[in-house]
């Protein structure tokens, strides 16, 4: 398990409009590209060999599965921000303001009153 690497995916994609567009249009292709050429980058030249996604993490990212990501302990701010970027506009147009955010909350309702999975890394 690598919460760090899941967070690195969310962080690097959310801050880059082009990667974000590709993550919306073809998540599987973008996740593959990310694992090959973006995730391992420590900076423009240096590469890191430390982290890798598990199959479950990869699948959660490909499926835009924010419930699974919450349950894995992905950072709540990164997860909320990136999925708002992907879905807020279309939900807003169809169902009004905050409809995506409220659906997001409802899908996690089984965690109400329980201790959440830790986001500590």
């Amino acid at each position: 398990m690598s919460k760090y690497y899941v967070n690195k995916f969310l962080y690097t994609v959310d801050r880059d409009p082009e990667l974000l567009r590709r993550y919306k249009e073809d998540p599987r292709a973008l996740v593959t590209t990310w694992e090959q050429s973006i995730g391992p980058k420590l900076n423009d030249y240096e590469r890191s060999t430390v982290h890798a996604l598990t199959d479950a993490e990869r699948e959660a990212l490909i499926q835009h599965d924010y419930v699974a990501l919450f349950e894995m302990g992905a950072h709540f701010f990164l997860s909320l921000t990136i999925f708002i970027a992907l879905y807020d506009e279309e939900y807003m147009a169809k169902h009004g303001p905050l409809s995506f955010q409220r659906e997001f909350a409802a899908k996690l309702s089984h965690w109400t009153g329980k201790e959440y999975p830790s986001v500590a890394t």
Binding site: F76, L80, Q101, F104, A105, A106, H110, T112
Partner: peptide, 9 residues
Amino acid sequence: ELGGPRQFG
């Protein structure tokens, strides 16, 4: 609450 079940209430 952000990104959890109690957000945006």
